[in-house]
Nucleic acid binder design. Structure first.
Length: 572
RNA sequence: CGGGGUAUGGCGCAGUCUGGUAGCGCACCUGCUUUGGGAGCAGGGGGUCGGGGGUUCGAAUCCCUCUACCCCGACCA
């Protein structure tokens, strides 16, 4: 490709509405343009990246024995009513009505459609196992789309669905997908982690997420240095608490006007945050439920949602509801003499001589002890694991990093096959409900995640495998030098003939502009052809990622570049 | 959903408080000079000032209203 024919829509200034680096760079490098909130057009350069990612995904899915299909984006409501999700999916499901007043939705995922296909087409166990996938546009009407294509409403997803006769087969299908995903993310050149994930919401037996490590990620993942434990922080159990010591203080009420937060309480009373307990009211099935944690710990919403009597998803009670239940506003409530169900985190239950709200405005209690001043509490693991906690598998300590979820694998069980009657006959002629798995990859999100992980002050630094072009060929002032022009044209053809994806900058512009633009769009390898080097029969080669400039004989240029391309085939 | 903010040429912004001929930088077009890390000079094109309504002799500017978009929050307890 020549820059003179490429829609190179680069910007010199950062867009005003882009917050994170990948969003800024995707706009500036001319990869995408926003059409409306959460809706993006992929420009030629961006689409090349997307296609590279798709090719890797397709290659590995096919290698793993999956078959590609393509399902409609718009789906009839009947299928969703059959699975029960028409009523349960909520406002993220974009619903629409056609001219005949029939209800449809724009698919946020395709379990219903694929299950419908399979129940119609698969009759015998001989047709199993079956794994069907597609790479297609999804729509989820996010409350708050943000970060460009990272959390868009419309996005490209690879979704695969496996069907097996029994659980053992389903587990094999799941393992095969898990392995394929490892190969896919390894080939894209991203630094990723496989983490245990919450399968509660969809109700499967096993689930893991694939996360790209990046500060801008929206998920917290916990892992140990040994590499033997990795899980979404939502799921990471906190370690067992220390034992509680004997009470040393007597309970007393202290006046604490204008003191609300733990840090204020701690400072005012001179008590460290770990001995200041906080009491959170969440909505429960029968009025609010109080959850008590140490001041230095955070409530884990997934753990809380699993408590009996707590409404899922967890919602904090309104300040009015808190006042009605406790007789004081949030900030002055505590477990002593409280008339609502109380569940206490194990670490908070191990506290002694602690501070908590007095259930009277502007007052706290100090020197409080369980069993004496408040009843021995019901306990549960409610807090998030924190940096330095012992790893749940007993090996080393936990580190917590931010991650961007780019893939998710699920063993679904029979959730959809049962409600939608997807059955087939086994060897004995008996009808068996199929075991399903589903497996997603955020194709468009991978492009953004790659930039989050790999950029510098000059722009994007693409991994070779997903770069829009492998090498940029930059003739210096070719419009003034027939020699430079002729040699660069010849080299361009030679690179193409060698199967190398080259972008020739054949515009009559100053070299500085070329360098800046090629850095911005992140082409990983660069050849610069100028009169000076040409006199020596040489050319300059440089790697985008912090490389030194190398002087290479012109006739060796193609081989030099070819030897430096990182083309991971996925073999081995 | 709650809170905050923004909307002026393709992009980034000033002008709005205090009403009076719509501006700057970048980008774009032409010419000359320049030419190894986003050149200089000169000339030029391009704007219903988000939409609607109102006040006024006169509205980007004041009032009402609608819309779009962005940010923060949904863990103070």
């Amino acid at each position: 490709m020549r820059t003179s024919r490429l829609l190179l829509a680069t910007e010199r200034e950062d867009p005003s509405d882009a917050e994170i680096v990948s969003h800024r760079l995707m706009i500036r490098a001319g990869l995408v343009r926003r059409l409306a909130a959460g809706l993006y057009t992929w420009l030629p350069l961006g689409l090349r990246v997307l296609r590279k990612i798709e090719d890797i995904v397709r290659d590995e899915m096919d290698r793993a024995g999956a078959q590609e299909v393509l399902m409609p984006a718009v789906q009839p409501a009947e299928l969703w009513m059959e699975s029960g999700r028409w009523d349960h999916f909520g406002p993220e499901l974009l619903r629409l009505r056609d001219r005949h007043e029939r209800d449809f939705c724009v698919g946020p995922t395709h379990e219903e459609v694929i299950t419908d296909i399979v129940r119609r087409e698969v009759r015998s166990y001989r047709q199993l196992p079956l794994n069907l996938y597609q790479i297609q546009t999804k729509f989820r009407d996010e409350v708050r789309p943000r970060f460009g294509v990272m959390r868009a409403r419309e996005f490209i997803m690879k979704d695969a669905y496996s069907f097996d006769l029994d659980e053992a087969g389903s587990r094999r299908s799941y393992e095969a997908m898990r392995d394929a995903y490892r190969r896919i993310f390894a080939r894209t050149g991203l630094d990723f982690r496989v983490v245990e994930a919450d399968s509660g919401a969809i109700g499967g037996s096993r689930s893991e997420e694939f996360h790209v490590l990046a500060e801008s990620g929206e998920d917290d993942i916990a892992f140990n240095d040994a590499g033997t434990y990795a899980a979404n922080l939502e799921l990471t159990p906190a370690p067992p608490p220390p034992s509680r010591g004997p009470a040393a203080e007597t309970m007393r009420e202290v006046s604490t006007p204008d003191v609300r937060t733990i840090s204020e309480v701690s400072r005012r009373l001179g008590v460290p945050p770990e001995r200041c307990l906080k009491t959170l009211f969440v909505e429960g099935d029968a009025g609010p439920v109080a959850l008590v944690l140490r001041g230095d710990h955070d409530l884990n919403l997934v753990k809380a949602s699993r408590l009996d009597g707590v409404r899922a998803p967890v919602a904090l009670a309104s300040p009015d509801a808190v006042r009605e239940a406790a007789g004081a506003g949030p900030g002055a409530v505590g477990p002593v003499g409280l008339g609502v169900p109380v569940v206490v985190d194990r670490w908070a239950a191990a506290a002694r001589d602690f501070v908590c709200g007095a259930n009277r405005d502007d007052a706290h209690l100090a020197g409080v002890n369980w069993g004496r001043d408040a009843p021995e509490p019901a306990t549960a693991d409610l807090r998030n694991a924190i940096e330095g906690d012992p790893s749940p598998d007993g090996r080393g300590a936990i580190s917590i990093r931010r991650g961007i979820e780019v893939g998710h694998v699920f063993q679904l069980g029979r959730k959809y096959s049962e409600s939608m009657h997807a059955v087939c006959l086994d060897e004995s002629g008996r009808a068996r409900t199929l075991e399903m798995g589903c497996y997603g990859i955020g194709v468009s999100r991978i492009a953004a995640a790659a930039i989050e992980q790999s950029h510098d002050e000059n722009g994007i630094v693409w991994p070779d495998a997903i770069a829009p072009f492998e090498v940029a060929l930059l003739p210096v002032n070719a419009h003034r030098s027939g020699r430079v022009r002729d040699r660069s044209e010849a080299l361009y053809e030679a690179l193409r003939a060698a199967g190398i994806e080259v972008l020739l900058d054949d515009r009559a512009i100053r070299p500085g502009v070329m360098f800046s633009e090629m850095d911005l769009i992140g082409i990983p390898h660069r050849l610069v052809l100028g009169e000076r080097r040409l006199d020596e029969g040489a050319i300059e080669y440089r790697r985008r990622r912090g490389g030194e400039t190398e002087i290479v004989p012109l006739e060796e240029a193609v081989a030099h570049v070819a030897a430096r391309l990182d083309r991971r085939s996925g073999e081995g």
